[in-house]
Design a protein around this nucleic acid. Structure first.
Length: 994
DNA sequence: ACGTACACCTA
DNA sequence: GTAGGTGTACGTC
């Protein structure tokens, strides 16, 4: 771009709203799809493209772009959570038009630009300044005063509705200050539509006058005491903090990380047929004719375009779908986490401010503790409607369900609680109000069929209907603590929570690792200094425990409303901290989008064949009984084989076998390793114990326990995934744990044959091959490892060959086995002690191996030292996507504690990066399958493996899609220097699919 | 009834 | 040597 060029920047998002309200409502004839704003938009674009010279702009563009807001979560929201919080939901008729306007932009062959975390205005500011710097001119198609700060000699604005140019004189005329002082003016006046605070009582006139007198905002604030008018002086001095924040909010960023260069915005010739096809689809007859004529297109010959519409009349919109395209991510994601948060002064300032906000709130909460007496029980429709209205005012509501079960797949609703911020009471939003809405409490003295409903509760259907409107509104942010639970419960009650945040996950991202837990009680004590009412005080414990629906409503109110209140307060403290620490991206990319993905997996469950398990259980019982008899024979007495204490006494006390070792509590160790060694020396008894343990383990943990988890209605097994329980970012699975189903032995694998596809379907298993070693090769930059993975060579054989000088061809299996153990050892933060144990060799020999390994692969040693150093310096290490894992004990004076933390800090970036990669895959994969029209459902995750269920004739087609997503899951955030490989198979059961 | 130790299943 | 969860035995309250 050069002198004489002219860039047009259309504020697409601003235009949508303005056109919608200014132009007459218009619907598409064929299906009543509202298209008024789209029509106005198309007409405007066309006019600017072919006829701009005849408007007030007076010049023809050489470059052109349309800019959109990406989503409601921007850095401003992080600085000041109430920013734009009072925006109500977009009108129903406008919603389908958001997507259509983007489609229209593409049909006009114009770049459609958006960037996560930034508003359209920031992107516009960036391009305008770039154009100016290049010696060109820019015209911003908008009349929004927020953009007027950008106006200069070379940057203009244009109000397309009024055909009016806005340059420096127009700004001065309208606002009384030149464009460069618009920021100061807005900081003083605030903006009620965006909820920017400003100073109460100061409007544009006063602000302009003050700025005229003092010159600029900084001087004004310094010399505020000189202001003569008492009230004005006081309010300005009192509002200095808010002015600071306001200024940050209204200052547009001119250095957003846009991925398009100015030259990418050069105007392309119109594609007549493409545009005509779109306009025909919209049924804009006049414009279609005009465009067809101008581009020499025969409109009659053109088929209408296939335009996706997110609209089904009465139902709410799915805004995520319109926006969350892979393309959007590509644009928004820089190539490394370092680039994600460049350490500029501006970024530092944002972080400092966010920290200040978090601290200010924490202090406020410390002096304004939780007050149970303010909580309200909502017992009628109109009261609930009032609460919903209050929630809509700020667009932010904390929500919590109370049920009769910890299992979200079984839970029935007892009630729910809401908490909202009272902005009138405190502009910082930290005065909270909370209520409890009982809907399913029982009276307690019912008949045998269960108590009747307690009195004075809103009928559950009515309450849910009102609640649905709030929770499904995409413009209302629903805050939960472990919201996956509430998401599932509400889903089972017909409500799909739309836009949400989760305080548990925020805490996990901020403080993962260490011995930190992220449950609400712990968070409340940590951040609010408040100990919540213990659950057991409400329901009782032990034998006298009751389910929540039987709790007295008044008691329930205190507990439940407090939960919502705490959740809202936690959010207010934690949200700005995410920004301050630069962890918003981790939270928004790796945590939050996984919530509903996992919830759906849990909801689907997997089919388990009772008969197979029951038959296996019988077989195991018989075999175990036989071995049991033999054991008693050999031992000469009957005893409890399952008691390590009794067993140790028999083996090492009574029989005096050699090789005894002690556990840390001084008991004889009877571990498998000890028994194996005894067996190898020819004794029959230890082997039988090992065999007996294997059989009874399989029986009790799997064949006997699993059927108890089959859901009475779905007839499937629904595990529960914990998102915030591991230090590294892995998931964990419980009730039942489906991440430890046996696979290593033939006996154990039989359990897997009981995990089956529904009739007419297949299970598809897809697992990453050697993902952790690949991640290691990437992170530590080991040339030989990278080469081996690039060439698809057996990685353990390669390692053995390098270390022991044995050719890969015809390598003895034992040599390879040792190399494999070393490779795993490296991932685990190797020690000579551990490797010696694993390989049953001397510690000195293990030490030699390690030394040799480090000589051959010096980068590994460097990586390990760097990891430890980083943990010592920062207190945490990071995955390749920026997830932090904290090691507060890395400097412990206890050498074994220290060594343990060092090994863990070596392992965490490897294990954690692999965990992040599969998380990314899981977030993308459902959309990828749906887009491909394949009906495959993701059921399970086992750390490096995903299991799907698909109709027989679609399973094979699903495999390449799944593989594609998984193998490219690190992209585009990280470009790995090692390829990822995925093995996948379809079969009737999990054993054969794996 | 609850907590801890031990053993053993997974990646 | 890393990261998890569960079942049994056995101690304590």
């Amino acid at each position: 771009m050069k002198n004489g060029d002219h860039l047009f920047l259309v504020d697409g998002s601003g235009f949508i709203f303005r056109a919608f309200h200014a132009l007459p409502a218009l619907t598409r004839k064929s299906d009543k799809l509202p298209v008024g704003a789209v029509s106005g938009f198309c007409n405007m674009l066309w006019k600017l493209l072919v006829d701009a010279r005849n408007t007030e702009v007076g010049v023809t563009p050489t470059h052109f772009a349309v800019i959109f807001d990406y989503s409601s979560t921007t850095f401003r929201k992080a600085i000041y959570p109430e920013y734009k919080a009072n925006r109500s939901a977009p009108p129903e008729d406008l919603i389908p038009q958001f997507g259509l306007i983007r489609e229209a932009t593409r049909a006009f062959n114009l770049p459609c630009i958006e960037l996560e975390g930034y508003e359209a205005d920031d992107i516009i500011a960036t391009f305008a300044r770039q154009a100016e710097a290049a010696g060109a001119e820019a015209t911003i198609i908008s009349s929004d005063k927020d953009l007027m700060q950008l106006v200069t000699e070379r940057v203009h604005m244009y109000d397309a509705m009024k055909d009016k140019q806005i340059s420096i004189p127009e700004v001065i005329e309208k606002w009384g200050v030149p464009p460069e002082k618009m920021i100061d003016l807005q900081a003083l006046t605030g903006d009620s539509t965006d909820n920017v605070p400003g100073i109460p009582g100061i409007g544009p006139k006063t602000a302009a006058q003050l700025l005229e007198t003092f010159g600029d905002l900084e001087t004004l604030m310094e010399r505020a005491h000189e202001i003569k008018q008492d009230k004005r002086r006081e309010s300005i001095i009192a509002g200095r903090e808010l002015v600071k924040i306001s200024k940050q909010l209204v200052t547009l960023k001119t250095d957003t990380p846009v991925t398009e260069a100015l030259d990418d915005l050069a105007l392309e010739p119109q594609n007549g047929p493409k545009l005509v096809a779109f306009l025909k689809t919209m049924e804009f007859t006049t414009l279609t004719r005009r465009v067809a004529e101008a581009t020499g297109t025969d409109a009659a010959e053109i088929e209408p375009a296939d335009v996706p519409v997110v609209w089904d009349g009465a139902r709410g919109p799915d805004l995520d779908k319109t926006d969350a395209t892979p393309k959007a991510e590509k644009k928004a994601t820089p190539s490394s986490p370092a680039a994600a948060s460049p350490k500029t002064d501006a970024a530092d300032e944002v972080a400092d401010n966010a920290t200040a906000m978090s601290q200010a709130r924490a202090e406020f909460f410390a002096t304004h503790p939780i007050d149970h007496s303010t909580y309200e029980t909502v017992r009628d429709r109109s009261a609930l409607e009032r609460w919903v209205a209050m929630a809509r005012e700020t667009g932010i509501v904390a929500f919590d369900t109370e049920t009769n079960s910890l299992d979200p797949m079984q839970a029935e609703l007892a009630g729910f609680s809401l908490a909202v911020a009272d902005n009138a009471a405190s502009p910082r939003g930290d005065v909270t109000r909370a209520c409890y809405v009982p809907v399913g409490h029982k009276s307690g003295h019912g008949d045998l069929l269960g108590g009747g409903l307690a009195e004075n509760q809103i009928p559950v259907r009515e309450a849910l209907e009102i609640l649905k409107g709030l929770l499904e509104d995409p413009s209302v942010l629903v805050i939960g603590q472990n919201i996956k639970y509430d998401w599932l419960v509400m889903k089972r009650h017909g409500i799909a929570i739309s836009t949400f945040d989760d305080t548990m996950l925020m805490s996990y991202v901020l403080d993962g690792g260490g011995n930190t837990t992220h449950g609400m009680d712990a968070l409340s004590e940590r951040w609010l200094g408040h100990k919540p009412v213990p659950y057991k005080d409400v329901t009782g414990s032990g034998k006298g425990a009751v389910t929540f629906d039987l709790v007295d409503i008044d008691k329930a109110k205190t507990y439940a409303a407090e939960d919502a209140d705490i959740t809202l307060r936690l959010w207010q403290v934690l949200k700005p901290r995410l920004v301050a620490k630069g962890l918003t991206r981790v939270y928004e990319r790796l945590e939050r989008p996984l919530v509903d993905v996992l919830a759906r997996m849990e909801e689907r469950g997997i089919s388990v064949d009772r008969q197979i398990l029951s038959r296996l259980s019988g077989e195991l019982a018989q075999s175990a009984a036989r071995i049991e008899d033999e054991i008693y024979q050999l031992a000469g007495e009957r005893f409890n084989i399952g008691s390590p204490k009794q067993l140790g006494d028999i083996l090492f006390g009574k029989m005096g076998l050699p090789g005894a070792s002690k556990t840390k509590t001084g008991q004889w160790s009877t571990s498998a390793q000890v028994l194996e060694e005894l067996a190898d020396s020819g004794l029959p008894l230890p082997r039988k114990i090992v065999d007996w343990r294997q059989l009874t383990k399989l029986k009790s943990t799997y064949t006997d326990a699993l059927p108890g988890y089959i859901h009475p209605e779905t007839r499937r097994v629904h595990t529960s995934y914990a998102m915030a329980s591991t230090s590294t970012g892995r998931l964990s699975s419980s009730e039942p744990n489906l991440q430890n189903i046996p696979v290593r032995t033939a006996e154990g694998r039989k359990i897997r044959t009981a995990f089956i596809a529904e009739p007419g379907n297949l299970l598809v298993s897809a697992d990453y091959s050697q993902i952790e070693l690949r991640v290691l090769a990437h992170i530590a930059e080991i040339p030989q490892l990278k080469q081996a993975f690039a060439d698809g060579i057996d990685i353990h054989a390669m390692t053995a060959s390098e270390m022991f000088g044995v050719p890969v061809e015809g390598m003895p299996s034992d040599v390879r086995r040792r190399a494999k153990a070393i490779n795993f050892g490296i991932i685990y933060g190797i020690s000579a002690f551990g490797l010696a144990n694993q390989l049953s060799i001397e510690r000195s020999e293990a030490g030699e191996y390690i030394k040799k390994y480090f000589e051959r692969f010096p980068g590994i040693k460097d990586y390990m030292e760097a990891s430890k150093a980083k943990a010592r310096e920062n207190g945490y290490v990071e995955t390749i996507f920026g997830r932090r894992i904290h090691y507060p004990e890395i400097k412990s004076s206890n050498p074994s504690v220290r060594a343990f933390n060092e090994r863990a800090s070596i392992n965490a970036p490897i294990q954690g990066s692999a965990a992040d990669i599969i998380r990314r895959a899981m977030v993308q994969i459902e959309d990828a399958l749906e887009t491909s029209g394949i009906n495959a459902r993701m059921l399970l995750q086992v750390h490096d493996e995903l299991i799907f269920e698909a109709p027989e004739n679609e399973a094979e087609k699903a495999i390449p899609i799944i593989r594609e997503v998984m193998e490219n899951a690190a992209m585009p955030a990280i470009s790995m220097s090692v390829p990822l490989a995925v093995d996948a198979r379809a079969a009737k059961n999990w054993d054969e699919a794996h």
